[in-house]
């Protein structure tokens, strides 16, 4: 944004005003080009995944990597069948686990973060900024770096290799708290809260009936962020889990992929499994897209 603004200012200073419009078209098509390149770049792997999942094992090396084979559809169905029945349907279990970790984790995580952010934005108390800064510094620490300390702590309380081991750390979202605070500060007017209090609404009720609705665009954003983060989380489950019935789909696919040497038939399963595993993310994005972009913009206002 600022670059274009600067450019425009420069252009205005150096060149006659009437060329400004033409330059702007050039820069606009330039931007479109860049976006097209990036879209291509990001979608090609997905396309590859789709095409490869319609192939039999022998066809991986003998057919064009980016186009379908004539009997692609039947191979696709056959691959799906194998995927869902392999090892007594363990892949379905992984999918269900992932939906649980990501769905419940993102829901609770969003709720907790929303409450924290709201409290930080709307209540005056000692140490508020300190607390907020501590939470903010949490954004800077990568989750991966915390996995091992978490493992050692969970070992102390014998919670490794359980659902809790992955679920509990997933509901913590410092970035969500940050987003919630910014958004609560800008979108929940103090006057409204005053009015609610005057009408006799308790603080908890005010939060759940009033604030949460005003904050809902940001909440969707936070939910999606958190959902994707947990869905893609790989390192924590890798360290915590040993029982494959607890695995999320990322770890399960990774384990399969690492065993291709011994069981080459897993290769096609990993590919179609990876494809199936991104479908829920695509659905989540498309269905919540409107809120998502709205929330993003709103979060950046302050």
């Amino acid at each position: 944004m600022s670059t274009t603004a600067t450019q425009r200012r420069l252009i205005r200073n150096d060149a006659p005003p009437r060329t400004a419009g033409r330059e702007s078209i050039v820069s606009r098509s330039g931007a479109m080009l860049v976006m097209a390149v990036f879209t291509f770049y990001f979608l090609i792997p997905v396309w590859w995944l789709l095409v490869q999942s319609t192939k039999t094992r022998g066809e991986f090396s003998s057919t064009a990597p980016l186009w379908f084979t004539p009997d692609g559809f039947s191979s696709f169905v056959a691959n799906l069948g194998t995927l869902f029945s392999y090892d007594s349907g363990v892949f379905v279990r992984w999918l269900v686990n992932s939906v649980f970790y990501a769905g419940a984790g993102a829901f609770l995580g969003t709720l907790v973060a929303a409450m924290c952010g709201y409290a930080l934005a709307k209540y005056q108390f000692r140490g508020r900024e300190v607390l907020f800064n501590v939470v903010l510094s949490g954004v800077l620490v990568p989750a991966t770096a915390l996995a091992l300390p978490l493992f050692l702590i969970f070992s102390q309380v014998q919670l490794t290799n359980t659902y809790w081991a992955v679920f509990l750390p997933s509901i913590v979202s410092p970035f969500g708290v940050y987003l919630a605070r910014i958004f609560a500060a800008s979108s929940v007017p103090d006057e409204l809260l005053e009015a609610a209090r005057l009408d006799g609404s308790g603080e908890v009720r005010t939060f759940f009936t009033l604030a949460i609705r005003l904050m809902s665009p940001a909440l969707v954003t936070m939910f999606l962020f958190q959902f994707v983060a947990i869905w893609n989380n790989f390192f924590l489950p890798l360290i915590m889990l040993r029982d494959q019935t607890l695995f999320p789909v990322t770890l399960g696919l990774y384990a399969w992929n690492s065993s291709i040497g011994q069981a080459p038939e897993l290769r096609s399963l990993v590919i179609i499994g990876a494809f199936v595993s991104i479908v829920p993310l695509i659905i989540a994005f498309l269905s919540l897209q409107r809120f998502w972009s709205g929330g993003l913009a709103a979060g950046s206002i302050k």
């Binding site: 890798l238 040993r242 029982d243 494959q244 990774y254 992929n257 690492s258 040497g261």
Partner: peptide, 14 residues
């Protein structure tokens, strides 16, 4: 029975 990725891919570290 417990499982994980192959040794150098993470299980040894575990």
């Amino acid at each position: 029975f417990q499982t994980g990725p192959s040794g150098n891919a993470g299980t040894y570290q575990n």
